[in-house]
Design a protein around this nucleic acid. Structure first.
Length: 726
DNA sequence: TTAGGGTTAG
């Protein structure tokens, strides 16, 4: 562009008007493209002086520039110079209104046009598509007398962009039947549709078609092919396409970043990113998103700061990625900073930004601020609604969540799933199945995550019947081989006491992850299969999967229960060094329990006293019960005193202490504790029971809060009198 | 008329 400016200075409009005008047109186009309107206006002034501002081609470019920057007054001035509104001027206006998002105005211009060409029709068709108004777009497309490649392609790419890839492909088939030849842009969109739908068979035949039609070397086509191959898992093929390209652009480089990420080589991706010949905000966003998705939030945010430092303007995508990263680490302050930034940029009310913000505020406990953001957004989509529903669920406001779910326009899987997990988090298990039934009635088909939530509810209430019923539904839907579902089934069966079924499900899982292994290991430990548990742990290690704190706790538990004290100590000592897991209170407690059960009481006491942080109350209790078992009165006294100290601070300590005294037969001490508790006003949390009647789980508390409480007690009285109990 | 990155749930 600088060269063009230099050329302009050397040209004399009096001598070479044609060349001068052409250079001006080029300059105006570029200035408009880069948003350099002040410079454009200066050039306009210069053109007036030269006397060629009314030259048709120049005037049109000037008009486009002013329309593009929404300078209506200036645009009107230019239009006055034209002899009425001809076709081109009308098309310029049409395009501008579409770009401004004012489709009503665009339609009015379109309707009033005395004549229309293919550009007018395509402008309107793609305009409706751009704003997600697919039906109206189709309406105009069907009536378009100029069905050329452009309007076909506008429709196809519009469908793909709006998430209707299948309709896009159907239209592509119609295009082929119509005899119109697809161009490189059509192919680019069609390949994208195949990638999106993971329809690899069709994808492969489209690629063959592309070669036959000679568009193989087109940059855009190659770029979309790289992504198609990546989605197909054909990493070598995507690399081959990239290597074969004669010309590569930012898009090609950005696409290849994903190849390395998919190969698990984030560092290599970073190297490519650092060495890319050219970067834009999309490449930056891609790298920032990858760091966040691969579990490196700090690195992601660091890169974002670097991007800003280098003078790149973050767009909506980029800000929403960063906001969701910050939400993940509950960085409220930093997130609020970005919120302010977004408002300044005028995109504070965008749905993408809004959804991330609702998520951020909710995850940080400020769900009321989340609601303010939610209310401020005019064009709400499902994602935003779901973000708010799960925000309420997360903060224990399940009733509010339910209210939203009831009024939202078209809830999907995720909406219902958020509601279900809200009830699970707050242990309202009878509500869980209630919501599930409503979900089914509303015609939404539950998915993997619905079932893994429901199964965890079954595991919590040990409802084997319901769990089996769900297992049947899962098989009917054909999702029994999903990792999440398999893991949840393993857990449900184990927690409901059916360890054989649990093992069977686990063994048949085609794909297992760290969680699946942990659940099975835990199940074996808690069901008393200590040896099998340890064997499975060894097997997990052989698969070079790193055990987490829960798996390690189960291993310690298993060792403790089959008397493998030294082996247990060995595992404990290698937790930090070998497995990189810092032992927590519960691990220490397990070791104390292990030592106490084996009668190694003084060792246990020493271990407790050498802990780097205060032990759990349970740890002292474990030692005390060891003392009782091995009749070590002296240590028992010392431990009991310690427990008393703790008990004074927390009600749980009292409860535990009184239970321990009770089991040791020290009834006088028990009464003392109960009295103390009464004086201090501490209350044990209420115990409850439940039963399942006609697919509904009923929970009972001794305080009679069940809805049918009166009726239940009445029946109970009746039964009592029948049984002749006074 | 286009390709690469993008919000919720899991």
């Amino acid at each position: 562009m600088i060269n063009a400016l230099k050329t302009l200075r050397t040209l004399n409009p009096a001598k070479n008007l044609q060349g001068y005008a052409e250079t001006c047109v080029y300059l105006l186009k570029n200035l408009t493209g880069q948003g350099l309107i002040t410079e454009g206006a200066a050039l306009h002034g210069h053109l007036i002086k030269t006397g060629i501002s009314s030259e048709r081609y120049i005037a049109i470019k000037l008009l486009m520039m002013y329309l593009d920057s929404r300078k209506s007054a200036e645009a009107n001035e230019i239009i006055k110079d034209f002899n009425g509104f001809d076709l081109v001027v009308h098309n310029c206006l049409l395009n501008a209104y579409v770009q401004w998002g004012n489709l009503d105005l665009a339609c009015k211009v379109f309707d009033e046009m005395p004549e229309r060409n293919e550009i007018s029709w395509t402008a309107l068709i793609s305009g409706f598509m751009k704003h997600g108004r697919v039906k109206e777009s189709m309406w105009y497309f069907e009536r378009n007398p100029f069905q050329n490649v452009f309007s076909w392609t506008a429709m196809i790419s519009g469908y793909v962009q709006n998430g209707f890839s299948l309709d896009g492909l159907k239209l592509f088939l119609r295009l082929l039947e119509s005899g119109v030849r697809p161009n490189e842009v059509t192919f680019t969109s069609v390949v994208k549709a195949c990638a999106e739908l993971r329809n690899f068979r069709l994808g492969a035949s489209v690629l063959g078609w592309i070669v036959k039609s000679g568009f193989e070397d087109n940059v855009s086509v190659s770029n979309s092919s790289i992504t198609l191959f990546l989605r197909m898992g054909e990493i070598d093929m995507s690399r081959r396409v990239f290597d074969r390209m004669e010309k590569r652009d930012i898009v090609s480089w950005t696409a290849i970043l994903d190849m390395y990420v998919q190969m698990g080589e984030l560092e290599e991706a970073r190297r490519i990113f650092d060495e890319m010949p050219e970067r834009n905000e999309v490449s930056w966003s891609a790298m920032i998103a990858r760091y966040s998705q691969m579990g490196y939030p700090e690195e992601s945010v660091k890169l974002f700061r670097e991007m800003i430092r280098e003078g790149f303007k973050p767009n909506i995508s980029c800000l929403s990625i960063v906001l969701s990263t910050l939400a993940g680490v509950e960085a409220l302050k930093a997130g609020m900073g970005i919120h302010g930034h977004a408002i300044k940029l005028g995109i504070g009310k965008n749905v993408y930004i809004g959804s991330s913000l609702v998520d951020l505020y909710s995850k940080c406990g400020e769900y009321k601020d989340g609601r303010l953001v939610f209310d401020s957004i005019a064009e709400k989509n499902v994602v935003l609604w779901n973000a708010m529903i799960s925000g309420y669920s997360l903060n224990g406001e399940v009733e509010e969540a339910k209210k939203l779910l009831d009024v939202m326009p078209s809830p999907n899987n995720a909406s219902w799933n958020s509601m279900i997990s809200g009830y699970i988090d707050h242990k309202e298990f009878d509500e869980v199945f209630e919501v599930f039934n409503r979900m089914i009635l509303s015609g939404i088909i539950p998915d993997q995550s619905t079932f893994s939530s429901l199964l965890s509810a079954c595991a919590n209430v040990a409802s084997l019947e319901k769990g089996k019923d769900l297992h049947g539904k899962i098989i009917k839907l054909g999702i029994q081989y999903d990792v999440f579902v398999g893991t949840a089934l393993t857990d449900m069966y184990a927690k409901s006491g059916d360890i054989d079924s649990s093992k069977r499900v686990f063994e048949r899982m085609p794909e297992k992850n760290q969680f699946s292994w942990t659940v099975m290991i835990q199940a074996l430990a808690e069901s008393g299969f200590a040896k099998e548990c340890l064997d499975l742990f060894d097997e997990m290690e052989r698969m070079s999967l790193l055990p987490d704190e829960l798996a390690l706790l189960s291993v310690l538990f298993a060792c403790s229960h089959c008397g493998l004290v030294d082996k247990g100590l060995q595992y404990f000592n290698s937790m930090a060094t070998v497995y990189g897991v810092k032992p927590k209170g519960k691990h220490y407690t397990c070791v104390v329990d292990m030592l106490s059960r084996a009668g190694r009481l003084s060792e246990a006491e020493e271990f407790l006293n050498s802990m780097p942080f205060p032990p759990e109350t349970n740890a002292w209790a474990a030692l005390l019960s060891g003392c009782n078992r091995y009749k070590n009165e002296e240590l028992a006294e010392r431990t009991a005193r310690k427990l008393c100290e703790i008990a004074e601070k927390r009600s749980a300590g009292y409860v535990l202490l009184s239970n321990i005294y009770a089991s040791a037969g020290r009834w006088i001490d028990v009464t003392k504790i109960r009295k103390l508790m009464k004086e201090n006003g501490s209350k044990k949390s209420t115990g409850y029971s439940w039963t399942e009647v006609r697919n509904k789980v009923h929970s009972f508390y001794s305080d009679g809060t069940h809805a049918n409480s009166d009726e239940i007690y009445w029946i109970l009285e009746l039964l009592r009198s029948e049984m002749c109990i006074p």
